[in-house]
Structure formats: structure tokens, C-alpha cells
Design a protein around this nucleic acid. Structure first.
Lengths: 338, 338
DNA sequence: ACCGACGCAGAGAGCGCTCTCCCGATCAGT
DNA sequence: ACTGATCGGGAGAGCGCTCTCTGCGTCGGT
């Protein structure tokens, strides 16, 4: 009595059966007489029984929580990392994909060394039984740690160094090629590119994919300027490009935010977009739609990719041993900037 | 032996003491002989012992997880809700505030009826021991449910209907007044406002605060158009306002995204910002800095507010009974748009 | 020297659940 | 009828931890 939550025992007493039988009903194990099953179900509703998760996971060694570990660049605060809409899309995709399973993501941030330890600790202490790792930093040690600790984990994006671990990723090169094809098809003949940080694999791939495609189209030399995925860095890069190559007529930026910056600088310099200079971004983030003119960009299906991470992790937890990867196809989204 | 994780028992055996003593050391209960403590600590490091959280919370009836429940407008998908940078700032603030405590937020989404049930279920089954509720919907039933179920909870923003529950909020009226004062001080004489949805308390407060302040400044009639916090709705609202009041020289928007839309429409119509029309936003979100010209806006210290929610919840979990509220002061951030 | 107080460690009883065993009953096959 | 498989249910042993209770040894006070 009192306000102690009702237990299996209470239900058993109320239904006149044993604890084991109630457990069978709760867990849907099928060999239970329909009559008894009904009686137990009724008793459960009656006294408002809820299985205690701690007790359950003590014996099953499973939790209904998985870690969603985020780590940003060295110099970002937790606030900045989470405020990135990219993170939000991942979180949304994960929550949606986890939806029916009754599992939930536990949010963690692994930037500082202490943060990393705490994450590993949570993993080892059985607070979660697997991890989804989303890192925008170049060389994250966490994947390696997870493998070493035998923690089931799935990455967003191929690890910098080869590690036997599952991941989802995008065909960045192909996406960049799509951008190149589109610019050329529009008639651009003097195109340049604003790249992301050279240390990030995705940046490298986008850059390489773009250059290769432009070479195929007969423009072997592509002027470039490096940014760091922020709006301001895109503006700065565009200024440099414009100074050295005032006659350029097309720009491919490594992400939408930098593309947005580029558009602003171009207009400031009196260049019409897309009239004088066509601009293509990458990601199809909310910034792409908010830019004026709206950005033509390469869509990265982040939500689907997050869902795939969840699938990969659940499979792994269900016994799948082999690391696997799922690579998504980018799509060209034509708006007004190119 | 084997790959079973080491338990208290194993440590006890290794250190030649009893389980209870190891437990005392692990939990920092002080009456343990320093010599024995050292021996136990060493044994723990030696065999790599980590307390099993499930076992611990089974007996202590606590978890190291708290729910971070998000619900958006009726018609939003989980993806959209989480992609809102506002959510990201909250998440970042929560993670940062939880930081040292070793607790983590469990992400949940409570839009559909089923979602709501599952959230309540997680709360009742002891998966989490408290909840942080962040809702952008007008009339969320969850606060009421939490009170009814005696689940410790803290809200972001005052509940629509009075409920005995703790919350943090912003002095929206004061923030709006700051915007009015600034526009008037700049010399604006014909100002209008783009409001958020009339159903949201924050919108109402901002609108009322702005109108009152303008009345004090001698402009009793303030033209207005309603939006729904999106960029597109801001554009549409600005179009309407401009059609009816082509001579306006100042605009206060209920959030930055709508302000961004307003700026774009104004420039399209040949109005210089801030030369011809000054624009003030609200929130100081990333959109404010990304707009050109950068938005003058009212800063809402979301991260600090999130941290306050955490404090309030932790206090409540520590025994505090009375619902409390913490109201933050907005700050005018002057950039270039006004 | 005696006694109560105190400090520190061990014993052991659960916390609420799952799951393996086991047992009785039913049923088909010879 | 006898055997053996099958099925539904109960008993009870843990899962790994915390925490109360107990007991022993040491110490200060008279």
C-alpha cells in the first residue's frame, strides 16, 4: 500500500497467479491461457502497474536508452555544437527512427577529455547499450575507444582513420560532381570553389569530386579558397576569390552557410546571382531556403541517414557482428541561385 | 574471468574486504580506514570495475537520466521540431548545466497522443526521475499530466493555463519595450509589428509589451500582421504591412526569422535597411547574425534559461516542494538593422 | 579497572524483475 | 492402457547493488 509503485507481486496477488505468469503476460510470451491472460491484463490496468525498468535491465542487461554522442570542433562550446541545425536534424531523425521501439537517445557531449571519460563510463556502466557517434571534428578518438571497449557504436560519416566500425555516409564526390555538372550545363565556364576545412574527410571528398568533374568538363584548373563551414568564412573566401578572379561566373561552396556568405558578398560587389555568378551550396539545410535567392544545393538526407544509423545499431544489438556501412546518394536540388 | 563485467563482489575479493566496504569506497561514505580505502581503490582500477547503474538504481530508486521532452506545433514533424536552432540552444544549455553531475538528458518527443503516452510511461516506469518540458505548442497537456502523476517537471515558458509547476521564462514585455524604445530613439515615427501566433503566450506578451511602449512614446496605433515564426510568414506579413502602410519607417518582428524575412522583402521593395526602415528582431538566434545587414535584436539567454531549468529540477529532486519560477531579463543587442 | 560511546567492517536482507527448471495435466500414438 | 511428447503454470534462484544492523575493537571518563 502507500505510494510505493505496484510491483509484479502485487499484480500476481490481485490476479491470483504467480509472478512468473504475470511476467509472461507483460512480455508477451505466448504460452499463457487466454483466460488467465485476460485476468492478468485486467489486474494490471486495475492497479496501474508499470514494469520497473531498472529491475528489468538488471537481469536482461539491456536498457531502453542509447547514447547520442556529439562532439564538435576543438574550439566549440556545447551550446554551439548543439545549436548547429545539422545536429537538430540528426536528433530528429534518431528520435523518429527510434519511435516505435520504446527506446530513447541519451544526449552526451564528448569534447573535453573529461567529457570523453564520462561518456565511456556511461557506456561501460550499462547506462546505455550502444552509441550513435556524431562528430564534426577531424580526428575523434571515440570510435577507436568504442571498438576497444567493445561498445556497439555507429558513426555518422566515415572515420578519419580506418576502424572496424559501422557508419553511414554520403557519396560526397558524387554530390560535388552533380554540382559541377549543373554549373557547366548552365553555361558557366570560369568556376571556383569554396572548400570546407581540409582536415575533414567530407570536405576533401567534396573538393576532389568537384575538381575531377570539372576536369572532365574541360576545366582542369579550379580556383579555390578554404573556409570552415561558417557564414563569415564563406564571405571571406568569396572576397579572396573575387579579388583574384574577378571574371568568375560560378561558385560551388562546401556547405550552404558558406554559400550564403558567398551570395551576400557577390551581391555587395554588384554581381547578380544567378545572373552574373551562379552559386551552388551543399547540404540543403534550412540556410539554403532562407538565402535570397534560395540556394540551389546538394541535398544530404540527414534524417534518413540518422534513421539508418539507428537501424545499423539495432541490428548490431540484435547480434549482427560485422561492421557495415550505408552510403547515401546525394540529390541536386534546383532553386534559384544556379 | 570471461567477459562478464567485474562486480562489487570481484573487487571485494581482490581487495580482501567485504562488498559493503567496497560500496562505501565507491560512494565516498567517509568512515573507511584510509589504508583499506587505498587498497580498494587500487583493486578497482586494477580490474576496471564500473558500478552497474541498473542495480544501483533498483535500490536507490534514482536514475542518472532526466527527460528532455520536446513538443512542437501540431503540424510539425519530429525533424522540424528538433531542427529548430532554438531547440539546439536549449539542448546545449541542458547538457552543459548537467555537465558535472553525471546526469544526462533523455530526448523525447511528445507530439502525437501515442508519443505522449510513451513519455508518461517512461516517467512512471522510473526510466527518468524528472522532466524538462520544452513546448512551442499553445496548449500542451503534458504539464498538467506531470502534476497529476507527481512527476517532477520544469517548463520552459509559463504554462498557458495556470498549473502548479516550476518554470523559467523571459520578460517578454520588457524585451518588446526595449525594441520600441530603440526604434523611437532612432527617430522612427511610423512603426509596425509582425507578431507571432496569437495562441502562444510569448507572442501575446511581446505584442502587448510593444504596443504599450509605443503608446507611451506617443504612437497609440501600431499596424500589425501575424506570422507563425517562420521566414516565409515574415515575408508575407511584411508584404501586407508594406501594402497598407508604404510610409512605415520601423518594424519590430516577434522573432529573428520573421525579421529576416521582413528585411528581404523591404530590400526587394527598394527600401534600405536601416536607412529607410529600421528592423528589430527577437531572440538573438543564429539567424540574426546571418542576416544582412545583421539584425538588431532582443537577446533571449536561452542557454542560461536552460541551465536554470536544470537547477530548478535538481532542487526539486533534492526535496524542494514549492513550484518556483525564474524570469530572465532580455537585453537589446544593437547590430546594423536598427 | 569498568562502562558507555564511538568508529569501522562484515553479514545479509532485500530492490523488482526474468528465466530456468520442474511438475502436473492433457493428448496422441502404439 | 502405457509411454512419451507437449503445454501451461509455479517455485525459486539469481542479476549487482545499497543499507541497516550487528559486532568487534579502541578510547575517554569516572
Amino acid at each position: 500500500m502507500s505510494d510505493r509503485a505496484p510491483t509484479l507481486e502485487d499484480v500476481a496477488r490481485a490476479a491470483g497467479v504467480s509472478r512468473a505468469t504475470v511476467s509472461r503476460v507483460v512480455n508477451g510470451v505466448r504460452n499463457v491461457d487466454p483466460g488467465i491472460r485476460a485476468k492478468v491484463t485486467e489486474a494490471i490496468d486495475d492497479i496501474g502497474y508499470r514494469p520497473n525498468r531498472a529491475a528489468r535491465s538488471l537481469v536482461t542487461r539491456r536498457t531502453d536508452a542509447i547514447a547520442l554522442v556529439v562532439s564538435g570542433a576543438e574550439d566549440q562550446s556545447p551550446g554551439e555544437v548543439f545549436a548547429d541545425p545539422f545536429f537538430g536534424r540528426v536528433a530528429g531523425g534518431v528520435v523518429a527512427a527510434l519511435g516505435e521501439t520504446g527506446q530513447y537517445p541519451l544526449l552526451m557531449h564528448a569534447d573535453s577529455g573529461a567529457g570523453r571519460d564520462r561518456v565511456l563510463d556511461a557506456l561501460r556502466s550499462g547506462m546505455v547499450h550502444g552509441a550513435l557517434l556524431v562528430s564534426t571534428r577531424a580526428d575523434d578518438p571515440l570510435p577507436h575507444d568504442c571498438v576497444a571497449e567493445k561498445v556497439p557504436a555507429v558513426l555518422f560519416a566515415r572515420p578519419t582513420r580506418p576502424v572496424p566500425i559501422s557508419y553511414v555516409d554520403l557519396e560526397h564526390r558524387q554530390g560535388a560532381a552533380l554540382a559541377a555538372d549543373h554549373l557547366v550545363a548552365r553555361g558557366c565556364r570560369r568556376v571556383a570553389t569554396i572548400t570546407g576545412p581540409a582536415t575533414v574527410p567530407a570536405s576533401q571528398d567534396r573538393r576532389a569530386g568537384f575538381r575531377d568533374a570539372m576536369a572532365r568538363h574541360g576545366q582542369p584548373y579550379v580556383p579555390e579558397a578554404e573556409g570552415n563551414f561558417t557564414l563569415a568564412s564563406g564571405e571571406a573566401a568569396m572576397e579572396r576569390l573575387l579579388a583574384d578572379h574577378p571574371d568568375l561566373d560560378g561558385v560551388f561552396a562546401g556547405n550552404d552557410l558558406m554559400a550564403q556568405g558567398a551570395v551576400q558578398v557577390l551581391r555587395q560587389h554588384g554581381r547578380a546571382v544567378p545572373g552574373d555568378v551562379a552559386v551552388v551550396g551543399f547540404d540543403d539545410s534550412s540556410a539554403a531556403a532562407a538565402t535570397r535567392p534560395p540556394l540551389t544545393t546538394i541535398r544530404q538526407p540527414v534524417e534518413d541517414m540518422a534513421a539508418a544509423m539507428v537501424r545499423l545499431l539495432l541490428d548490431r544489438l540484435a547480434g549482427e557482428e560485422q561492421p557495415r556501412s550505408v552510403i547515401f546518394e546525394p540529390v541536386l536540388v534546383i532553386r534559384e541561385s544556379a
